[in-house]
Simulated scan of single mutants.
Amino acid sequence: MIKSSYSVIGVMSGTSLDGIDIAHITFKFNGGWTFKINNAETVSYTDFWYKELSNLVNQDLASLVNIDTNYTIYLSDAINGFIKKHQLNTLDAICSHGHTALHQPDKGFTYQIGNLKQIAELTKQNVVCDFRVQDVKLGGQGAPLVPIGDQILFSEYDFCLNLGGFANISFEKDYSRKAFDICPVNIVLNHYSKKIGFDYDAYGNIASEGQVNLSMLNELNGLKFYQLNFPKSLGLEWVNSNVFPIIDRYQLEVKNILRTVVEHVIIQINSVIKEKPNASVFITGGGVYNTFLIDRLKDFCQNEIIIPSEEIIEYKEALIFGLLGVLKLRNEINCLASVTGAKHNHSSGVIFYK
């Protein structure tokens, strides 16, 4: 049934593995969409699940199927805990991204765990999930999916930039939404921070003490991915094959690795946003808290950098997957061909009824 108001839970787990973002959102439609995030929190991964999810790309399909079942139970428990804590009695749906296990759109394949029908049975709620598979079947990248939310909810900004495991961006060009992954960010920074005992480089303090290695920087900037036209997307497999081998070959101190990677990130981001000098760049994701990276970007570019409220920084992706779920319930377009390269716009995702 088409309604003017929806109460949903948006759920997101990203490649940076900082946890499961869960947000209770009210969406209202009156000629346009408005939203209110009522409650939101991040459920940190246990050590077991952090290690398990870090190693997904090395698993065979049979192992992934087993992990999928166990992760669905784990995810359902986290969502049930959130529902109980906030006494949510009436929901239209849980709208969940799941967690990316494998992403190889060039081979026509993508796999998100935590999207089994079991999640609806365990939560006793309607669930909208598995948003990527249909797009890949239609010849698309299956990513990024957030740009339609940028278009609908944050259209006042020229660029919407997310700094998570990867940097991705969306913007209007030639009367349609364009979006793509720019480069890896936290997936690399966190990897090397852990080698010296830190989960991440808080505020970019370690990177700020390092020196740029120009040879490594030039080699990273020379990767073929950066020359490709969009649509294009990245996954951990690409980082393992292309980025880590370059960095490890130089055998640098971690502070110099982090400093060089930060420089690489801002160069790649600037290569996109410099097309519109003075344009507004709305930045979300955990990378916003890397103040050294943000300050370097401000120094490097000629754009207006806008940092929103902490609530939007932390939960924008959970918010937008909530919106994608609502659009699917209404059988409306929630996946843009101009972004993913699919054959046509479509309403993506699977609905499991309680």
Score class of each variant (00 low, 15 high):
110 T>Y: 09
224 K>Y: 12
90 T>V: 13
144 P>S: 08
38 N>I: 13
188 V>G: 10
106 D>V: 12
33 W>K: 06
317 E>K: 10
236 L>D: 04
3 K>Y: 06
204 G>S: 02
111 Y>E: 08
67 I>K: 12
349 G>H: 08
61 L>K: 08
192 Y>E: 04
187 I>R: 08
29 F>T: 08
54 S>T: 14
129 C>V: 12
58 N>P: 02
61 L>H: 10
192 Y>D: 06
306 I>Y: 02
188 V>P: 11
93 A>V: 06
164 G>K: 02
307 I>C: 09
299 D>F: 01
287 G>E: 06
30 N>L: 09
319 L>Q: 07
220 L>I: 10
10 G>F: 03
37 I>Y: 05
205 N>K: 11
229 N>C: 05
348 S>K: 05
46 T>L: 13
148 I>M: 09
257 I>A: 05
166 F>H: 08
234 L>A: 09
343 K>R: 11
157 Y>T: 03
138 L>F: 13
312 I>M: 06
303 N>M: 01
322 G>L: 03
274 K>G: 00
259 R>C: 15
354 K>I: 07
262 V>M: 02
223 L>T: 13
46 T>G: 14
57 V>C: 14
183 C>K: 05
173 K>S: 12
210 G>S: 03
240 N>I: 09
175 Y>H: 14
353 Y>F: 13
148 I>L: 15
345 N>Q: 03
65 V>N: 10
103 H>L: 11
287 G>F: 05
9 I>D: 01
171 F>P: 03
296 R>L: 10
319 L>P: 07
198 F>N: 13
321 F>D: 06
13 S>Q: 07
294 I>E: 01
245 P>N: 12
275 E>V: 05
95 C>N: 15
6 Y>E: 04
267 I>S: 04
26 T>Y: 08
263 E>C: 06
145 L>N: 05
181 D>F: 04
160 C>A: 10
200 Y>W: 14
79 I>W: 02
109 F>M: 14
300 F>Y: 13
30 N>D: 15
309 S>G: 01
